[in-house]
């Protein structure tokens, strides 16, 4: 992607999740880093794919509070590919045990972030990898 183009991020929470502090913070911190953030809450995998296509985003970021992340990744990644979004960067963050990171990696999630990190760490990762990784 060209340097002068603004990176567009879909920040999604899955359907039936609760608490929004982490996701709202990361939305604001990514905006601080100059990105455009579409804040999308409470979608099932299909809704998230539709939003990603409609908004033509470069990144899909999933915020997790009440688990179900493995299943969401397994549902979402093939659907993104089917919808022609094979080049979208998919990241996850929140209450996710480290032991599940390899499973998510296998499902095609590019990177998982633990809670509490500065948003700039996530922004740097996005800047470095956006447009360069394909979905498996």
């Amino acid at each position: 992607m060209a340097d002068n183009q603004q990176i567009k991020v879909l920040l999604a929470k899955k359907k039936i999740d609760v608490h929004g502090r982490g996701s709202k913070l990361i939305a604001r911190e990514l905006q601080d880093a100059g990105m455009e953030v579409v804040y999308f809450r409470f979608g099932v995998a299909d809704d998230i794919v539709d939003a990603a296509v409609q908004e033509d985003v470069d990144v899909v970021a999933l915020s997790i509070m009440t688990s179900g992340h493995n299943q969401l990744a397994r549902d979402l990644i093939p659907k993104l590919k089917e919808a022609g979004k094979d080049d979208v960067l998919v990241i996850m963050g929140g209450i996710i045990p480290e032991a599940d990171y390899p499973t998510l990696d296998e499902a095609g999630v590019h990177r998982v972030f633990p809670p509490g990190l500065p948003g700039s760490a996530v922004a740097e990762y996005i800047e470095e990898h956006v447009g360069k990784l394909a979905l498996p």
Partner: peptide, 22 residues
């Protein structure tokens, strides 16, 4: 669990993957 709080029974499609979890 979140499906109960939100008001859907176990056989509702939106309850899937959330039943009895948290």
């Amino acid at each position: 669990d979140v499906p109960c709080m939100y008001g859907v029974d176990a056989d509702h499609p939106e309850a899937e993957n959330n039943l009895g979890q948290c």
